[in-house]
Design a protein around this nucleic acid. Structure first.
Length: 583
RNA sequence: GGGGACGUGGUGAAGCCUGGUUAUCACGCCGGUCUGUCACACCGGUGGCCGCGGGUUCAAAUCCCGUCGUCCCCGCCA
């Protein structure tokens, strides 16, 4: 006969079930032993239910043996709690009077209990315990809901979910590849995909004009709080569309996905060009939630006699800054100054309005200029202006943008609770790589340029990023669908014909065999969920993440492999390079 | 590759600057009392070669060097 392990879950019973005989199964979250009567808090994925064990119950002797995190089965009657002992939790109006308890599985005393405040290292080593906590459980469920909403939207709009290979070809450009040695072709390697970029383009050329995939991507680069060596992208591509089509539907898509978990994003996402974003926020992923736009003060300083500023303006430099109302002092300002100095700026100027007067350590040199600013921007009591001068405008923007963001995080955490979504468009097509002394594709080399015949530094791309709360949620582009243009782009980034053939020959062939105009986007799904969950660490929305050094604390990967495995692959390890040598 | 922070019973922290007692506190765990708790309460108890290696010193958790691990940041991540 089939053994019934549960009739209900620990999250669903309420006073409507009173009088019913039920079976619950789950983990023992807490035991409160009052000497006679015992209370056991039983937990499963759905919630927690209080079990009452009376001394006269048949369950009592078993209950004596139970420890926390045991897996037990409880049979008993649902009763409404005495009025004064009701709580306002989900199942707080009832309890289950145990008539029988069955220990399904015992448990050692765990290194920590679910939800206990312990180091992340320990949580990762015993991830299955950590995942029992409410916070982690909620995050995993949130992730599921968002994934389902994404699929629902895309399916409804005619997208096909298609898988692409994990074992694929190493490509130049972009991140370092994870390599997988081939046994059948000794000495050769597959690469794990950094993204399914080329495959999704090939799918367009195959005629699947709307595609998506929850694609695992692999990049062998150093990690951060928001970066894992393997991560999930919602990868999307469409044919016969222009930039406007994509922005429009993807905006709708993101709104739908966030809406499914109760977060309402604006009806229309603003669009900033890359240049505007850099000028106003000093970042290509601006967080606009706390204002403080960068302003151009050059004009107000054009006549200054203050040496450092004057020198910079004489060689076509700029003065920029922003207005805020934070507390400021020499000490704070010098801390801020350190930030901009890292970008190469000479220093940071500041003044504040106090008793309608301009107060600043540099007032005796610059009070006229400060007064002009006070006039022009109608500065009021308590306003603080931080500003700097520098020759290179881009660097000036970035430095002030970094400072702006730091101040925002320090002083405007309330405002940081809202949501702001926008597009950044018109990215530069190329980027100068100092190290390699060549231009590299800023997005990737398959991006369609807008004005290819312009001088390299002026070429713009049909490329767009979606920004949510200062995070790059996703980015994409229209793609080149013409072999001639593709070849020209390879040339621009210094990829020789032979090299291009060798690395991307299959794409160049495909582009000659009927390629439709197409483009797409990819969203960083882990980041999407992290933002929705309110966490600033994507590890908290990944069931089994790796540490900052790429180690899986749970399994111990990466690990040594046997001599035989290496021999089969034709691989010899150079032991002098090894870390952590044990043998 | 570089910079910073941290590493003390099962867990979280204090002690370290200014070297010297039996390494402190809370939680957990074990035992006891307790029949309406909900972080049960109260009483008693258990448990640490202070990450590892080396050095300085009469003496090192404490100072110095190295190393390993974790976290954060820069570089890197089309």
């Amino acid at each position: 006969m089939r053994i019934l392990l549960r009739t209900h879950t620990c999250g669903e019973l309420n006073k409507k079930h009173a009088g019913m005989n039920v079976i619950l199964s789950g983990w023992v979250s807490r035991i409160r032993d009052l000497g006679g009567i015992k209370f056991i808090i039983l937990r499963d994925r759905y919630g927690e239910t209080q079990v009452v064990v009376n001394p006269d119950s048949d369950a009592y002797s078993t209950a004596q043996e139970i420890g926390r995190e045991f897996v037990i089965q409880v049979e008993g009657e649902v009763r409404e709690r005495p009025e004064e002992t009701k709580t306002n939790t989900l199942t707080g109006e009832i309890e289950v009077y145990a008539s029988k308890i069955n220990i399904l599985s015992t448990a050692e005393v765990p290194p920590f209990f679910p939800g206990e405040k312990v180091s992340e290292e320990l949580r990762l080593r015993y991830r299955y315990i950590d995942l029992r906590s409410k916070m982690m459980k909620d995050n995993i469920i949130l992730r599921h809901k968002m994934a389902q909403a994404a699929r629902e939207f895309l399916n409804k709009h005619g997208f096909l979910e298609i898988e692409t290979p994990f074992l694929t070809k190493s490509t130049p450009e972009g991140a370092r590849d994870f390599l997988v040695p081939s046994r059948l072709q000794k000495g050769k390697f597959y690469a794990l995909p950094q993204s399914p970029q080329l495959f999704k383009q090939l799918l367009m050329i195959s005629g699947f004009d709307k595609y998506y995939q929850f694609a695992r991507c692999f990049r062998d680069e150093d990690l951060r709080a928001d970066r894992q060596p393997e991560f999930t992208q919602i990868d999307i591509e469409m044919s016969f569309i222009d930039e406007e089509d994509i922005l429009k539907i993807m905006e709708e898509f993101i709104r739908f996905v966030y809406n499914s978990v109760g977060i309402n994003l604006p009806e229309k996402f603003d669009r900033l060009t890359y240049e505007e974003a850099m000028e106003k926020y000093g970042s290509d992923k601006p967080d606009r939630r706390f204002g403080m736009e960068l302003l151009d003060f050059t004009e107000e300083f054009i006549d200054t006699e203050f040496r450092v500023v004057k020198n910079i303006l004489e060689i076509n430099g700029s003065v920029k800054g922003f207005i805020t109302d934070i507390p400021i002092s020499r000490k704070i300002a010098s801390e801020y100054e350190e930030i901009v100095k890292k970008f190469g700026l000479g220093g940071l100027l500041w003044f504040k309005i106090e008793n309608d007067k301009v107060i600043s350590p540099t007032a005796k040199f610059l009070s006229n200029n400060y007064l002009k600013l006070k006039e022009k921007f109608k500065l009021k009591e308590g306003d603080v202006v931080l500003l700097a001068a520098y020759t290179n405008r881009n660097v000036l923007n970035e430095a002030l943008g970094t400072l702006r963001l730091k101040i925002g995080k320090e002083h405007f955490s309330e405002k940081m609770k809202s949501f702001d979504a926008l597009w950044v468009i018109d990215f530069p097509f190329l980027e100068w790589n100092e190290e390699e002394q060549r231009y590299v594709a800023r997005h990737h080399p398959f991006t369609l340029p807008k004005n290819l015949d312009d001088s390299p530094e002026n070429i713009k791309a049909y490329a767009y990023d979606m920004i949510l709360n200062g995070n790059e949620l996703g980015g994409g582009s229209l793609r080149i669908y013409n072999e001639k243009i593709q070849e020209k782009v390879f040339e621009l980034i210094g990829l020789s014909k032979t090299e291009a053939r060798e690395k991307f020959g299959f794409l160049l062939d495909a582009l000659q065999l009927g390629a439709p105009p197409h483009g797409g986007i990819a969203f960083g799904f882990d980041r999407m969920v992290a933002i929705a969950s309110g966490s600033d660490n994507i590890r908290d929305v990944i069931a089994f993440p790796k540490t900052a050094s790429g180690v899986c604390q749970l399994t111990g990967a990466p690990s040594d492999v046997s001599k035989m495995q290496l021999e089969e692959l034709g691989i010899i390890i150079n032991n002098s390079n090894r870390k952590n040598q044990k043998d």
